[in-house]
């Protein structure tokens, strides 16, 4: 690490210290290429999977210091990818994510509890301009190389967030329930 980078890090750490309750550890770095943010929804009674190809995650997490842990995940809604261009167009269009109007969806969590060998984050999801509490269960595992893996999922109702307008408010052909799952690879 270069001298400048070291100084910058030190500066960032100082800034954190200065801005109220100190985070015990610096934020993890997301490795986008090794991470995945996916979803599964149902059409005509069949489950299909998709993913977001662009998202950022600011993860501060320490098993020993849940109180100062914090997640902030920002998802580029236009990056929804289901492997079929015409469906992606509808999904990112005004009836679903309306990416033009709401380019990002944000999940924020500051409240963490242990749940068996996993954790529960009680956070808030802001999607298509609607803010709702969303609990997310996840496992956090440190790797030998000093990195960590964050794996979890949650269930949403798309209509709670207005994802599906007009004819799409019907759940006969497109289910209301959507599972969101993620596998994040983190490093220092």
């Amino acid at each position: 690490m270069g001298r400048v980078a070291r100084l910058t890090l030190a500066g960032a750490a100082l800034a954190c210290l200065a801005s109220g309750p100190a985070a015990a550890e610096p934020a993890w770095q997301l490795e986008p290429a090794a991470s995945r943010l996916g979803f599964s929804a149902t059409q005509a009674g069949a489950v299909f999977e998709g993913r977001f190809t662009r998202f950022q995650a600011e993860i501060r997490f320490d098993e020993a210091d849940l109180a100062s842990s914090r997640f902030e995940v920002t998802v580029d809604t236009a990056s929804a990818d289901t492997g079929e261009a015409r469906r992606d167009e509808i999904l990112t269009g005004p009836d679903f994510f309306w990416a033009e109007q709401y380019p990002t969806a944000v999940f924020e969590a500051t409240e963490f509890t242990r749940a068996g060998n996993a954790y529960l984050a009680r956070g808030t999801l802001i999607l298509r301009g609607v803010s709702k509490p969303v609990p997310v269960r996840f496992r956090f595992e440190r790797s030998a190389e000093g990195g960590a893996g964050l794996v979890g999922s949650t269930r949403l109702r798309r209509l709670d967030f207005g994802v599906g307008q007009g004819e799409w408010t019907s759940t006969e052909w497109v289910g209301d329930e959507v599972e969101v799952d993620f596998e994040l690879r983190l490093s220092r």
């Binding site: 009674g45 299909f48 492997g83």
Partner: peptide, 12 residues
């Protein structure tokens, strides 16, 4: 096309 087939919504 990643549109899994279901038989009348009963079996995927």
């Amino acid at each position: 096309a990643n549109y899994p087939v279901s038989w009348f919504g009963l079996v995927q």
